[in-house]
C-alpha cells in the first residue's frame, strides 16, 4: 500500500446497517458515487427503504494528482465476504455507528475486529452518529470500551450528512497514517 507509487489508494467506510456509509460517501465524493442499493425487506433490523448489498464507490482527486477511492461496504453480517473483499489493501477504515442503536458497543467490537485485520495497525477512525438524539450512548463509552480492549482509536461525534464532518473523519485518518510513518522510522 503505497500512494507514492500507484498514486491511488482507498479508504473503506464500514459499519452496521443504516449508520450512514452511503450518505458519507455521497457527501464527500467529487463524482456521483456508484451505489448498489436495493429495497430493504428487513424492516425489523432497520426501518429504512433501501440498503446497500454490494458496495458504494466514490472518489476524490487531490491537487497533487493522487486519487483517493472511497469504498462503502454493506452493513449486515451476511455480507461479511464484501467486508473482506473491500477491506483488503485499504489504507484505513472509517467505522460509522449509530449511537442510539441497541447493542452498538458490540457492533463496535465486531467492526474493529473485522477491519483491524486488513488495515495497518491503528488506521481506524470511528464516526459516531445521532449523538444528540434521546437514548444516544456518549462517545466516551466507546472510547473506554476501546481502551479496555487495548485500542487507542479516535471516536468522533459526527453527522455524516454534513460534508465538513465527513472531512473531519478522513483528515483524522490521514493524520494517523502520517503519525505512523513518523513512528515507523528508527531513531
Amino acid at each position: 500500500m503505497n500512494p507514492g507509487v500507484q498514486g491511488e489508494f482507498k479508504i473503506v467506510f464500514t459499519g452496521p446497517m443504516g449508520a450512514g456509509k452511503t450518505t458519507a460517501i455521497a457527501a464527500l465524493s467529487e463524482v456521483e458515487p456508484v451505489r448498489t442499493e436495493v429495497e430493504n425487506t428487513d424492516r425489523m433490523s432497520h426501518d429504512k427503504e433501501f440498503t446497500t448489498v454490494g458496495l458504494d464507490m466514490g472518489r476524490i482527486t487531490l491537487p497533487g494528482g493522487q486519487v483517493v477511492r472511497l469504498y462503502g461496504t454493506p452493513g449486515q453480517a451476511r455480507f461479511r465476504f464484501m467486508w473482506d473483499i473491500l477491506g483488503r489493501g485499504a489504507a484505513g477504515a472509517i467505522i460509522l455507528l449509530d449511537a442510539t442503536q441497541a447493542g452498538v458497543l458490540v457492533q463496535l467490537d465486531l467492526f474493529v475486529d473485522a477491519f483491524a485485520a486488513h488495515v495497518p495497525r491503528g488506521a481506524i477512525v470511528i464516526g459516531l452518529g445521532r449523538t444528540h438524539q434521546p437514548g444516544a450512548l456518549a462517545s466516551d463509552a466507546f472510547a473506554e470500551r476501546l481502551e479496555a480492549r487495548g485500542f487507542t482509536l479516535p471516536v468522533l461525534s459526527v453527522d455524516v450528512r454534513k460534508r465538513r464532518d465527513v472531512m473531519l473523519l478522513v483528515e483524522t485518518l490521514a493524520c494517523i497514517l502520517e503519525a505512523q510513518t513518523t513512528e515507523g522510522l528508527p531513531s
Partner: peptide, 25 residues
Amino acid sequence: RRWPDFGRLGGTSALIELAALASAH
C-alpha cells in the same frame, strides 16, 4: 489512552496531528 472527541470538542488540524502522534507513541 483515549482520543479527545474532536467532533464534539471541535478540533483544529494542529490538534488532530498532536493527538495522532500521541496515540501512536
